[in-house]
Amino acid sequence: MVSIPIALMVAVVVIDVLAPPDIHLGPLLVAAPAITASFAGPWLTGLVGALAVVAQAIIAVLRDRDELFSANHQAQIIALILVGSSLVIFCVLRERRARELTQVRYVAETAQRLVLRPLPKHIGPLRLASLYLAAEAEAQIGGDLYAAARTSSGTRLIVGDVRGKGMTSVGDAALLLGAFRAAAHRQATLIELVAYLDGSVCWNLAEPGETDQAGETFITAAIVDIPDEDVRIDMINCGHPPPMVLRNGRVTTLDAYHPAPPLGLGELAQPSYHLDTFKFEVGDLLLLYTDGVIEARDATGAFYPLAERITRWTESHPDAFLHHLRRDLLDHVGGRLGDDAALIAIERLPTPT
């Protein structure tokens, strides 16, 4: 890349020296350090700037032997020095900013690994894959969440979405995930687990400084229990988009018969939780997701037709399925989502005898 500004300086010197006296191309030398600053650091930019000053001096010597370094050439040399110095300062500040951004990304990635721990590829008789798509280009985590926990008789999973954005939503997501991981294997029934999670969110909102958020902050979530020895799913849906099961090319939407209010509204709604049970057989693919998927819009404003799209796919492995879904979803929205999206794909495998 550095050959481009050097070639430019050589061309300017040769053409300026050979051109008629009334044509001056010396001011074009300033483009050389400007081009260099677009891809190089301060040292290389400063070197090219110094070479541009030398090139201007050569032009002055070869063109005006009778009047070396006239006022015009002196002004151009001073301008090159000022512009070159400014570009070097710009490169220094840019590199400092890049180092800060790298550190921020590292912290964000570490926070993501701590809050959204990677799901195991296999857990019990299940094969899993997960995906998190952030709406912001530099963001690594937001208010969407998912987790899995092993119990003595099966596997429990949660996928949810915190109302709002920013660091507050990240904190609420971390709180719920911590409560789920602590209690998923301790609470005897799914109903008791969901009641505990709702209480955890409500208690957090009751802390000092959080009371003004009561009734305004809540978390939609779908919590499922998949027994090892039975081909079924037990689910409590707390205001979340319903999961889907893909079976033999057909999609079944797991609409809750007994929907519950979002977590965090228990003190206001006084919910009575009930289980919804659905079939989940060997070879089926279960998809849990957040509303960032189904509310993704294309250029015409049309929502992403999730159920319609996935019926056309033949992938049964969760990793391949989510890879296809990610590509198709981003193609639909033109490469950038308007909201965070989290997905879990689960395949039931034959139980070893």
Rank of each mutant, 00 (worst) to 15 (best):
R163H: 11
E138H: 10
P261R: 14
M244L: 15
F278C: 01
I236C: 08
A40Q: 11
M235L: 03
D298E: 06
G199C: 12
A296M: 03
L205M: 15
A260Q: 11
R327P: 10
Y146M: 10
V162L: 03
E192M: 11
E100V: 09
M9Y: 03
T351S: 06
Y132F: 10
S169Y: 01
I35K: 04
D22H: 12
G46N: 09
G160T: 12
L287W: 02
V201T: 14
I15T: 14
G49H: 07
P259H: 11
T351P: 11
A32T: 14
L157H: 07
P243L: 02
A108Q: 02
A269P: 11
Y273E: 01
A134P: 06
E210H: 13
G335I: 12
A11Y: 00
V282M: 07
A40I: 01
L325A: 07
E315W: 06
H24V: 13
L8V: 13
L80D: 02
V170I: 09
Y106G: 08
V48L: 03
C91K: 15
R65K: 12
R99N: 12
R232S: 08
V104H: 04
R309H: 07
A135D: 04
L349C: 09
Y196V: 08
S3R: 14
L288W: 02
R113W: 00
S153V: 14
P350Y: 01
V194E: 00
R232Q: 11
V92S: 15
I4W: 05
D234E: 13
K121M: 05
L131W: 00
D161W: 00
G142H: 04
G334P: 05
H24I: 12
L263Q: 06
R117D: 13
L205R: 14
L133M: 12
L101E: 08
D144R: 01
T151N: 10
T311P: 03
P259T: 14
W43D: 15
I35G: 00
L246N: 08
Y106K: 04
T311K: 05
H323L: 12
R63D: 08
L87R: 05
R309E: 03
Q140V: 00
E192V: 11
A75C: 06
E109S: 00
G143V: 00
L343T: 02
I236N: 08
A320M: 02
H240R: 03
A108N: 01
A7N: 10
T151Y: 00
C91E: 09
M244I: 15
H24R: 09
T252N: 13
P318W: 03
P271R: 15
G84F: 02
D225I: 09
P21Y: 10
V194W: 04
L175Y: 13
D228F: 11
L29A: 05
V2P: 03
I15A: 11
A320Y: 05
P27C: 05
R181Y: 09
E138D: 10
L205F: 12
A173C: 07
P242W: 07
G264L: 10
R150I: 14
G26V: 11
Y106N: 08
T102W: 02
A98T: 09
P271N: 13
V83M: 06
S153K: 13
D234K: 06
A174M: 08
T353K: 01
V251M: 07
S130L: 03
V201M: 05
L116Q: 03
G166R: 14
I77R: 04
P305C: 05
D319I: 13
F321N: 10
V48R: 02
Q270E: 11
P20V: 09
Y257H: 15
I219F: 02
K279G: 14
M235C: 10
V53Q: 07
